[in-house]
């Protein structure tokens, strides 16, 4: 690691911190293996997304201010979550007195796979992962951050995560009937519209099961948590990993 290399802050979403420490560890180790100087600033809480999406953006001033102060001095902020990154960039309230820092921050916050492909400029990862992998394209990463093309748009197809996964030796990419349909998590939607949320999750799982997915992965642990919760309840034979876990395992 070069001493003058950019200093990267790892931003770990609150529920990942609490429920999926392995995803945080994998993200950290992966970035380190790719030669990055990474720090996990202590004292991280929540970006405020659940509140804002529930209609209480005005109540997230405190968390947003805390977030800016914690991360503003790093060169990059990287998170294993498209959804939280999108929230920080587009849905956090403007903090008086920190407008400049906030605007700068929005340009240096990245979701993990886009950081690897767009900033580290890594075209392909050398590694091995001999499994049949189904990818869940989380909406906020896909249509919010444009991490992959949308089936609705007339554009050249691309998928940043797929680019990283596809080159891994032995990995079989699963083609789905509906490549980018929402899983039904949607934050508070998961509980306020419980019946719909479960049905949407079941339908996504059926698509993967029909196409013999062995491991279901994605860039947002929240969607995976929801899908895994339904699959476990219904005893469906699927394994779940965050993409950081796959990449970190594959290149070790």
């Amino acid at each position: 690691m070069k001493s003058d290399s950019p200093h990267i802050a790892l931003f770990i979403p609150c529920y990942v911190d609490q429920f999926y420490p392995s995803v945080g560890i994998a993200s950290l180790e992966l970035l380190e293996k790719l030669g990055c100087k990474v720090t996990f600033p202590l004292g991280q809480t929540c970006c405020g997304q659940p509140l804002a999406n529930a209609g209480y953006k005005r109540d997230t001033v405190g968390t947003t201010k805390h977030f800016i102060e914690l991360f503003k001095d790093f060169d990059y902020v990287v998170a294993p979550s498209g959804s939280c990154v999108l929230h920080v960039k587009e849905h956090s309230p403007v903090i008086p007195g920190l407008e400049k820092e906030q605007a700068e921050l929005h340009h240096k916050v990245f979701e993990l796979t886009e950081f690897i492909t767009d900033i580290l400029k890594i075209e392909k990862l050398d590694g091995r992962f001999p499994h049949r992998v189904g990818f869940h394209s989380s909406c906020h990463g896909q249509r919010g951050l444009r991490l992959s093309s949308s089936s609705e748009l007339n554009q050249t197809p691309f998928n940043k995560a797929r680019r990283l996964l596809e080159n891994l030796e032995g990995l079989e990419w699963v083609e789905l009937n509906r490549t980018d349909e929402c899983c039904g998590f949607g934050g508070t939607f998961a509980v306020t519209e419980e019946a719909l949320s479960i049905q949407m999750g079941k339908d996504r799982l059926d698509d993967h099961l029909q196409h013999h997915t062995e491991i279901l992965t994605g860039g947002d642990m929240s969607c995976i948590m929801h899908l895994q919760g339904i699959a476990t309840r219904n005893k469906q034979p699927l394994k779940f990993l965050h993409i950081a876990e796959i990449l970190n395992q594959a290149i070790s």
Binding site: D17, P21, S22, I25, L28, F40, L42, G201, Q228
Partner: peptide
Amino acid sequence: NAWGKGRNLPETPKESFQQWYQKNR
């Protein structure tokens, strides 16, 4: 509990990432 009606909760890890980080990094 609307979450638990049709979904299981994730297994609870013994420590948070933050705790792991403080021990290991």
